Amino acid sequence: MPYAVDFAAVSTTGLESSPVADALAGLRANEARYFKNKYDHVFTTEPADDAKATVDWVSRILEEERGIVVSSPPLEATEFQVENIRWAYVFYRSGLSINVLYTLDDDGKRAVGFKLSDGMEVPAELDGFKFARQKSKLAGTIRGSFFVIKNEH
């Protein structure tokens, strides 16, 4: 069942099995606030089993672009388009959030972003990435990194 993420009252709905559920919920709420403020878009997630096509698309991009296979099971995912950008998010039990920004114009930006919830270790599959720190009232300290997508997906 789809869940409209509320960034005013942060909830762990759908993320309860994560050892860092509160921090991951804050991270998800932080994304919801961004999309509401920038695009007036309501950020809605659904269980990963119901969003298999989205999870598979993100996984395929990770593997084809960088040989990355995420070891943690996905809990929730979402995919939507705002303006001319296709967005996909997958939230994993470990506390990892992965997003794909895929501009539909041929010359537009295309990237994969990683965000680590407060309290989680850097997963082995992301060991070579450097992470910048960002403070968030909703999520505590968010560590983030990204890479540019080079191929068509």
Rank of each mutant, 00 (worst) to 15 (best):
K52V: 04
N151W: 08
P47F: 05
R86E: 13
E63Q: 12
E64S: 09
K137Q: 14
E121Y: 11
K109F: 03
K36L: 06
G113F: 12
S145P: 11
V5M: 06
A53E: 15
N99S: 15
S97C: 07
G140L: 02
K109D: 12
F7R: 03
V122G: 07
T12K: 05
K135E: 13
N30A: 12
T103H: 15
T44L: 01
A23G: 00
P73C: 10
F91G: 06
A48F: 11
G119I: 11
V90D: 04
A77Y: 09
P2D: 05
P19S: 00
F91E: 02
A29G: 08
F131A: 03
L27K: 04
R66F: 02
V58T: 06
R110E: 08
L27W: 12
D50K: 08
Y92G: 01
A77G: 09
D118G: 01
V5S: 01
T45H: 07
G26Y: 09
D127E: 14
K52D: 04
D106E: 15
G144D: 05
G140C: 10
D127F: 11
A77Q: 09
D105P: 09
E64T: 06
A4M: 01
I68A: 14
R133Q: 15
V5L: 10
S117K: 01
Y3V: 03
R110F: 01
P123L: 14
D118H: 09
S97E: 04
Y92A: 04
G67F: 05
H153K: 09
S18A: 02
V148T: 14
G113W: 15
W57N: 13
S117I: 00
G119P: 02
